[in-house]
Amino acid sequence: MFYPNSPQTSPQLTQIPYGQQYAMMQRQIQQPYHPFATTEPQARLYPYHYQGPIQQEQGGFITQQSTAASPQYVQMRVTPVDQSIMSGYPNQTANGSSSSSFNYNIHPQQQQQQQQQQQQLRHHAMPVGSVPLQDDRYRKQLIVNYLAPDVTSTDLHELFSRFGELDGARIIYDKQTNMSKGYGFVYFCHAEDAKEAVERMSGYEFHGKWLKVGYSTNPLNIVPSNSSPYVHAGSRGAAG
C-alpha cells in the first residue's frame, strides 16, 4: 500500500523548493479562506456584503464582478436614472436638479381664491374633541361614552347635575331594538360647569363602566337656548 506522503511516492527534499517541504498533501497545500485577509477597505468593513468592485458596462447597466450573493443577503441591482424623465418638472436647472418651490404660472386672482378656499376649509374642519370658538353652545354640550346598558337618562342627569344647572341629558337608544347604544349627551347651562365635568368625570366608574367624557361637536345635538329642557323620564321611549 502506498500513501500520498510515503517515501516511495514523495520526491527528495532537495528537489522541493524551500517553504513547501512540509506541504505535501493536497489539504495542506490548499490555503484556508480568510474573509478579512484583503487589501480593499470595503471588504474589511463589510465582509458579507462586499463582492468586489463595481464596473460600468456598455448599455448603462451596473453589474458586479463577483458571483451571486448568499441567500441570506439580498443584493440590489441599481440602474442609472434617465434624465429625460425629470425634464417635465418646473424650475429645473441645466444640471438636472430642481428647486423646492414650484411655479405653475397661476393667475394671481386664482391663487388668492385657492388660498381663501383653504382658509375656509381649515375654519370649518374641526378635529374630534375640539371646541370651536365662534359658538358658545359647543362648550356646553358633552358626550358621555361607555355607558352601561342599564343607565337611563334620569341617572345621567343626576350624575352630572352636581356640577351645575343642566339644560338636559339623554341616552341614545336603538330604534329597532330599543336598547341603549352605550353613549349619551349632557347639556349644561354654563360653559364653566361643562369644563369642570369634563375634567372630573373622564375615567369615572359608573355602573361598572369607566366613562369617557368630552365635548360634543355635532351641531345636530345642540340644544337651542330658547327651547324647553328635555324630559328626564326613566322610560326608554321618552328618553330616546
Rank of each mutant, 00 (worst) to 15 (best):
P47V: 15
S153N: 07
Y215E: 00
S227R: 10
D193G: 07
S87H: 05
Q20P: 11
G168A: 06
Y104D: 02
G96A: 05
T39D: 08
H157R: 08
G96I: 06
Y33K: 01
I171N: 02
E40N: 11
G214N: 08
T63V: 13
L220R: 14
Y3L: 03
I85H: 10
N226K: 02
Q72Y: 13
A23L: 14
M201W: 01
Q55V: 14
Q20N: 03
H232L: 11
R77F: 15
M25I: 15
G234S: 10
P219N: 00
I222Y: 13
T152H: 03
D136K: 01
Q117D: 13
Q42H: 13
N145R: 02
Y3H: 07
F2Y: 12
L220Y: 04
A148D: 02
S84M: 15
A148L: 01
Q31G: 13
S98I: 08
D167M: 02
F185C: 00
G52M: 12
Y183M: 03
E158Q: 14
S130C: 05
M201K: 00
V74W: 13
S6P: 10
Q111T: 10
Y89H: 07
H232S: 05
Q12T: 06
T79V: 13
Q56G: 13
T38M: 13
T79Q: 10
Y146L: 00
F36V: 07
D135M: 14
L45W: 05
D82H: 09
Q115M: 13
N105V: 14
Y204S: 05
R170S: 00
S10E: 05
H232Q: 11
Q112K: 06
R200A: 04
P219A: 00
W210E: 01
V213R: 00
E192M: 14
E199A: 12
S10P: 10
Y46D: 02
Q113V: 11
L159H: 02
A194G: 01
A23M: 04
K209R: 05
D135E: 07
Q114N: 09
M126G: 09
E205W: 15
I62V: 14
E196V: 08
V198D: 01
D167I: 01
Y18E: 07
S153A: 04
K195Y: 11
Y18W: 11
A148R: 06
F2W: 07
A169R: 06
D193R: 05
S87N: 06
P80V: 11
Y183P: 04
A197R: 01
I106C: 11
S100V: 15
L220C: 13
L147M: 07
Q134E: 04
M86V: 08
L147F: 02
P47G: 12
G214V: 00
Q15P: 06
T39S: 06
K140M: 02
A169G: 04
Q75D: 07
G19M: 11
H49L: 14
A69D: 11
G214M: 02
